[in-house]
Design a protein around this nucleic acid. Sequence first.
DNA 1: GTAGGGTTAG
Length: 549
Amino acid sequence: MLLKARTLNLISRSHPQRALNVNHLSHYFALFTTTIAGNTKQSDSPDPDSSESPDIPSWVTNQNPESQPSEDDDFVIPSLASWVGNHPKVKPFASATEKPQTQLDIFTQILKKPYSSPEEVVDTLNRSSLSVPSVSVNRLWKRFHDCWISAYGFFIWAKEQTGYKHDPQSYSFMVDILGKGRKFDLMFDLLEEMNQLKGYINLYTIVKVMRRLARAGRFSEAIEVFRRVEEYGVEKDIMALNGLLDALVKGDSVEHAHEAFLEFKECMTLNSSSFNTLIHGFCKARKLDDARKILKEMKEYGCQPCVVSYTCFIEAYCREKDFEKVDSVLDEMKKKGCTPNAVTYTIIMHARGKSGTIRKALEVYEMMKNDGRLPDSSFCSSLIFILSKGGRLKDADEIFEDMEKQGIKPTVLTYNTMISLACEHSLEEKALKLLQRMEEDSCKPNVFTYKPLLRMCCRKKRMKVLNVLLSHMLNNDVSIDLSTYCVLVHGLCSCGKLEQAVAYFEEMVLKGMIPLDSLRKKLVETLEKENMTEAVEKIQRLMSNVTAK
DNA sequence: GTAGGGTTAG
């Protein structure tokens, strides 16, 4: 036994049903509860989509074929309490109450419709006799973050209204939305407009621009923005250079990052972030010799390699499943007096868990504990993930329940992990209850919260719940991005809901998003099999418009 | 926004 066997002292708590803040979800829980309370084995159970899903949901029978005991089931996981000790408990999270904002709703309704151009949005708004909403503009940017036509149309219209002026933050949002939509000419025009306004551009704006360019593979243009950064009134300092390096590395071109580094390193004093960003980039690109060269250069420059530098190497060796090398880096760190932290341990535990038995992963858990390092929410999320993947759902649930008691507040990552695992196992009620709990915890969901839920709804043909989730997304200002549309189109296609699949495909294209050809092919092929000729023609018309533009 | 999302949209 490698780990000290302790009694798993995690008390499962019952969670009394609390009133929901969002009516839609509440309505659906009522339906689910009725299903559980009634005899669910009867064919006339009041399932929300009963006509389409005659099978009893697995969460009712509580049987999960995928959660069979694994070979590591004899391992007892030490409780978080035995580690964290008497850490003060977090206060109960405030409830996510928000009154419906009428103005926001009105604008959302208008902007949600598909438009062919921002000018069309402006025309519609001009005919509406509406005035610019006073408080909810920032929420509109979030809601339409993936729809540059609506957002930009609203931006232009609002700017033309008497007495209204966009603040620098709105400009910054708009620049980012245009960058995300890859409308770089418009993005640069807006940046120039901000420049004329004086004081509207800051480093944050510039980094956003560089990130969007790098994400689109426009590396040279990103570097050019940095070259001209002073023309935008932003200081050409190490913060800006590090922003550029990070943008290029995140855009998957450590080569361009290195070029930029060589071009500008003489102009300013570098810091450890500059070197670490490059080390990370080379490690991610599996160019470990280059990463080592940078580490050497870092030392020669007078910057001491730190936990971040070493962790990049550890991550690279973890990716190669070379755990001997991981151990040798840990030894080197120890010799240098550089203690691994929660990030280092999370990476190793996660890789161990993914590559084989949970046993090795749990050794990392023990190692970290012996080092006196406290777990954080990311560490716990990782632990929950690997436990579930190893079939130990109950242990994963207990870690989740224990987090709050130990003062480790679950974050959106923790909830996303729990929700996606529940969805993978088709535990519908559990997944939705987690979303509800997230809301009660004032933990804002993001696009990754909804994707597995939407996928599950398609798989189970729960069209009503799917629509509830889509409104829930909107209420939480999470816009449907390209990949989420793909989940919808794919999912609906696979479950035979072809009309809905076509509708979402159309919506996506009309919003200016360009789907991968594989998605179009899958949809068209499925439609052809069903002889839906008109729909096929519609798809082809839509796509020819896209290529024509 | 210097390192840790299972995140593949498939």
